[in-house]
Simulated scan of single mutants.
Amino acid sequence: MTDGLRDLVAACRQGSEPYQALIDRVPYAAFLGIEITARGEELTFVLPKRDTNLGNPTLPALHGGAVAGFMEQAAIIFLLLEMGEPRVPKTIDFTMDYLRAGHFRDTFAECRVTRLGRRVANVHISAWQVRRPEPIAIARAHFLLSEESATEPPE
């Protein structure tokens, strides 16, 4: 990670820089229009209602790929903010369950780290539109945090 991005993540974690500055450094997150709202230490990611995220104009409904991309980007940004020493996570796998129709309106997501190791992190992501207990999609993702070889002895 470049020192500029490392400094930006640190500034966001300390509250001296708005989260949007970090979003703007991630091209796909910026394209989707992702926003972050913070209440205390809880972060909520927002996928705003935008024509570029529309999949079926007849219903109208969000594009499934936009929802999945939103959730994956939210997890990556969440990990960057959660880690003590920021490293850009690389997706190992991403498992998605679509539970309800994603209507053409703002969509919200929250992330929860289920395991944060030295090399791998597991994250659970939940996305909803109207009520948090009624998610439209949930996902589980595994991320590589380190390029170290798995055969290297631990430090």
Rank of each mutant, 00 (worst) to 15 (best):
I138L: 04
Y98C: 02
E152M: 13
G33F: 03
L81T: 01
Y28M: 12
I34W: 01
P154D: 07
D3L: 09
Q14T: 10
A137W: 03
R132S: 11
R131Y: 06
F45V: 08
Q129E: 14
T95A: 05
S146I: 03
G65A: 05
M96C: 08
F94Q: 03
L81P: 09
A30F: 05
V130N: 15
L59A: 07
P135R: 02
F104R: 09
M71R: 05
E82W: 12
E72I: 11
T2K: 10
P89T: 01
M83W: 10
L99P: 09
L99F: 12
T52G: 09
A10S: 10
I92V: 14
V130I: 09
A101M: 11
R25N: 15
A137R: 04
D93E: 08
L59I: 04
A109K: 02
V88A: 12
S149C: 11
R112V: 05
P60S: 11
E35A: 12
L62N: 12
Q20L: 03
G33W: 04
I92N: 10
V113W: 01
A75V: 02
V113G: 02
A30D: 13
A139I: 00
E41I: 04
M96N: 14
R131L: 03
H124W: 06
D97K: 02
S126H: 07
F143L: 00
R131V: 07
S16Y: 01
L116T: 00
R132I: 08
T52S: 15
L80A: 08
R132W: 01
L22E: 07
E42I: 14
T37P: 02
Q129W: 04
T114E: 10
I136Q: 04
G33N: 10
G40R: 07
H63V: 11
V67E: 00
A127V: 01
R132P: 07
P153I: 05
A74V: 05
E110K: 14
K90N: 13
L145G: 00
P57N: 14
A137G: 11
R87N: 09
L54R: 15
E17A: 14
E155S: 13
A139T: 00
G117I: 00
